[in-house]
């Protein structure tokens, strides 16, 4: 994540409309539109298909086991476009249900990360001095433990449930946000409008939460879109090593991990959900990259 250096004059003039300008700039790019369309289609499918098709992602049907996907191999049917697994469960329905959990955890985790990171960065940057030192050393320490080691350590010894996964990933991922927030707040707190507010007698909390935060949070939130994808990968990694949402609830991670055992005679169980995940993530990343570029263009930073 890059820390942009801002030209104060341009910044003040643009402050009112920065968010909407970033939106418009990003929306004008092809990659953002492609990503958005694919993403909306996938979300709709995930929201509707498992119920509408009447195919329960956890219902076993031994007679229909190991049916290959459309046009690939013998015995495929339109009823199971992505085939079935070793227990006859419909792969499309499973993958889409997995997508629900993946999105839920990805978004919730990123929001949590953003909130924690922004708050810690805000306090460290605004108060400076000893508060800053303590908070930043804590950030450094957190940054020095690879996130995944932290996550699997906590989830490995306690029971992985959806809230605990969100909490662990969110609490492991905040340091980067805290750093970015701190440095921008430090630059911002020296500006005239902040000093003006102080002279008028505004309390520190008022300045922090009503003046600085609303100005700095949106640009950070745009870039956080990329982190949603990263967190979704994390969630699937956890599921893959058995520390994610537990079966029988299907998630990308546990479907792929399960399908690995049958890879030699039913390759689609492990690979098809992955294709799904890759398409979803690519659409999110395209949107995120477009937003990031738009932000950098408007701020003129790298």
């Amino acid at each position: 994540m890059s820390v942009t250096t801002l030209d104060p004059a341009a910044r003040v003039a643009a402050a009112q409309t920065v968010s909407s300008r970033i939106w418009r700039e990003a929306f004008a790019s092809i990659e953002f539109r492609i990503g958005l369309i694919v993403f909306i289609l996938l979300v709709l499918a995930a929201a509707l298909y498992p119920e509408l098709s009447g195919l329960d992602p956890t219902k076993l049907s031994v007679r229909e086991k190991l049916i290959p996907p459309l046009f690939l191999g013998e015995g495929w049917t339109w009823k199971h476009p992505l085939g079935t697994d070793q227990l006859g469960r419909d792969m499309l329905s499973r993958a889409l249900t997995g997508l629900r959990y993946s999105l839920l955890i990805g978004v919730a985790t990123t929001v949590l990360m953003l909130i924690v990171g922004a708050l810690i960065g805000l306090f460290a940057g605004y108060y400076g001095g000893r508060v800053d030192m303590v908070l930043m050393r804590l950030t450094d320490a957190q940054l020095a433990i690879p996130m995944i080691i932290l996550a699997i350590t906590i989830l490995g010894v306690s029971r992985p449930t959806i809230p605990s996964i969100i909490l662990v990933l969110g609490l492991a991922g905040w340091p980067v946000y805290a750093r970015v927030m701190r440095s921008t707040v430090m630059a911002e707190a020296k500006k005239e409008y902040v000093r003006g507010a102080m002279v008028l007698g505004a309390t520190n909390l008022r300045i922090m939460f009503l003046l600085i935060l609303p100005l700095l949070l949106p640009p950070m939130a745009f870039v956080a879109v990329l982190d949603i994808a990263r967190m979704m990968i994390f969630e699937s990694v956890l599921g893959f090593i058995g520390l994610g949402v537990q079966p029988p609830t299907p998630t990308f991670g546990n479907i792929i991990s399960d399908g690995r055992k049958y890879i030699m005679n039913a390759w689609w169980i492990a690979t098809m959900p992955g294709v799904f995940l890759v398409i979803t993530l690519t659409s999110i990343n395209l949107m995120g990259a477009a937003l990031e570029r738009a932000r950098n263009k408007i701020y003129g930073g790298a």
């Binding site: 990308f252 992955g274 890759v278 690519t282």
Partner: peptide, 12 residues
């Protein structure tokens, strides 16, 4: 390309 690469889960 980088959007695609970053979207490939390593285990898959």
């Amino acid at each position: 390309l980088s959007s695609l690469f970053v979207s490939l889960p390593n285990f898959w």
